[in-house]
Nucleic acid binder design. Structure first.
Lengths: 351, 351
DNA sequence: GCTGGCAGTCTCCACACACGACTGCTAAAC
DNA sequence: GTTTAGCAGTCGTGTGTGGAGACTGCCAGC
């Protein structure tokens, strides 16, 4: 899309109106805009322009005797302008510095994402989130088995990027601690450097061969590995921070009603809903912005989402923020963009 | 405290009023109470009793022509009655069954507490929380070192109760993977079964001896152990679930204003505030209830807290719920009591 | 000591009214 | 043709009034 459809002046008026409204939260009157430097025309002229913009669906009036408010389409136009003109430059340094302050130089994977979500909240004053890539593409580094009882084992698996996961597994028959150590050694020597998905496939393949051969040690090791990898991929790790900002949004009633607040708080709890919501936006490069009614879920029509994907080798995760449609987009975009780059850098430095 | 100060009938009226108010949320009129079975007196008599109760500070009127509402003192009297007469019987089975459903038979420690907080939320429809005991008294079970780079090591420490913790540590000088394995073996053989606090002391003591002796392996192992244990105790693990219920509480304006909501959401984020809040109530046996203005923090005057400590050997943690002062106390008490017992049982079964 | 009845009080709701904030339109000026 | 000033019109907000309804407090009688 190009800006051709609107005249230069019309575009400036729209941009001015959106900015004013984002700052003030009040419907913007034609007289207010005419006093703005840059638009050297009278309020009557502005009124004509606004009438046009209203016809085209970019702004609307809450009631006849009120100023104009941007519609979702108006925000969309404004945001596209920001994105195309790169006026919202990416802000890596602030985010990276604050993350380092929080999580240190060599954070665990979970700490890294948790601090990313926290910093996004702190800087934007909206709900910040960070989503881990699917575990199946993580690079297997090491596994350890800790005997808990005769038939119960604690598995600790380490993947590249300081990514540690744990699981308790129940065995059909008792197993000696020494056998566990041997099993771990075998698996570590054999599979280090493969993705978890590849490990899973290799394990299944070898178990198939194993039926005919007879090697007690290997059989135990492979069975343990299979059980461990069984439930790994299911819930994607999600980190969210700043739910308290929702109360602020609801208070000055930015169109964020109590029911929207509830929906968002629920989403903060059932984090997997957020993952599903984001799936559609993870592919594109750079920052994606989803505004109000563009959301498939009607409950979210009062909210906007600013999200950017980050890469970790072949894997993709995402960071972003959720706030009211009336949000400071240029700042949000630069911060989210910066956070995505910062997270990717941290991960690169670890490997 | 005994109930002597109030006549039998007066007490029954108060209990009835509190129950009615908890159910309806509306100020209770004398006529409503007189229709209640059990209190076979006319509304005029009830009015006399209510006037007395008001003088004593157990109930109040929002305005002259309204019914009565219990004060915090009224709730306190009612709750003490519940606690003394054991009318709120402990409900272990519901909680335990739901926790088992959620977390399985052998949950990791974190999963156990997380599911406890979730179940408390589900059954009470208020914010549920679970707080881990201080890590320093956990029983050391096993340590593993995973080399990340020449001078960077991932430490995985397992304590009794499926309690896994991780940490990345930075070394002053490079170290060989084989040395790490030996160090882990040494520490595991030497210290298993001690509390982390005891381990820390033993490590420091041996490092002191070590200065004169000369044993490369031990020196490395002990230094690693010291670094690992340095930052362990600081933040107490806290699990909270059900923040979305706060929106419900605020919606039907149970005296839970937007600012209270914000305070609670903040507390859900800065979990350590909750820990500090609870410190005072962890000592007593059974369930503790803190009602409205009994809270030191004025922001919490619209909230009540129901909390019970659980034991894990010598360690103490806590579970509980937070809701509006108008809460279904008898149910809350039995559920929280049950959850504390259930958590303790899970932990006993693991050891 | 309990009860019925009654006057008094206060909230809540509906309606009316005036004020103020903008707009849309029109006619004149550039 | 475009821009501007001016003015009439519209609608939300704040205020005030009145009546209905809900309870209470008090008093006199049982």
């Amino acid at each position: 899309m190009t800006f051709g459809a609107l005249s230069d002046r019309t575009r400036r008026v729209l941009a001015c109106l959106v900015k004013d409204y984002i700052d003030s939260g009040e419907p913007v009157a034609s007289a207010t805009l005419s006093r703005r430097p840059g638009l050297g025309v009278s309020s009557a002229t502005i009124r004509n322009v606004l009438a046009q913009l209203e016809d085209m669906g970019y702004v609307s009036q809450p009631h006849t005797s009120a100023g104009r408010v941007p519609t979702d389409l108006g925000y969309r136009y404004y945001v596209d302008m920001l994105l195309e003109t790169r006026r919202a430059s990416r802000d890596i340094s602030t985010v990276e510095a604050r993350m380092r302050e929080q999580a240190g130089d060599a954070p665990l994977f979970d700490q890294l994402l948790s601090s990313a979500s926290h910093v996004l909240f702190e800087v934007s004053h909206h709900v910040g989130f960070a989503i881990a890539p699917s575990d199946m593409h993580a690079i297997f580094q090491r596994i350890e088995f800790v005997p808990l009882s005769a038939s119960r084992v604690l598995v600790v698996m380490v993947a590249r990027g300081n990514h540690v996961s744990q699981k308790v597994i129940e065995l059909n028959e008792d197993i000696a601690p020494s056998a566990l150590t041997q099993a771990a050694n075998y698996l570590n020597a054999e599979f280090a450097g493969l993705s978890l998905d590849e490990v899973r496939q290799a394990v299944l393949a070898r178990l198939e061969e194993q039926r005919t051969l007879y090697d007690e040690l290997r059989a135990v090791a492979l069975t343990l590995a299979r059980t461990t990898l069984e439930g790994i991929q299911s819930p994607t790790a999600v980190f969210i921070d700043g739910a308290s900002s929702l109360a602020d949004d609801a208070e000055d009633a930015n169109g964020v009603s109590m029911s929207t607040l509830r929906t968002l708080l629920r989403m903060v709890e059932e984090k997997q809903r957020l993952v599903r919501l984001l799936d559609a936006y993870l592919d594109g490069p750079g920052v994606a912005v989803v505004i109000g009614a563009e959301h498939p879920d009607p409950q979210l029509h009062a909210c906007s989402l600013v999200v950017a994907a980050y890469r970790d080798g072949a894997r993709r995760g995402a960071v972003g923020i959720i706030g009211p449609t009336r949000m400071h987009y240029s700042r949000a975009i630069s911060v989210v963009d910066g956070a995505a780059v910062a997270v990717a850098r941290f991960l690169r430095d670890q490997n």
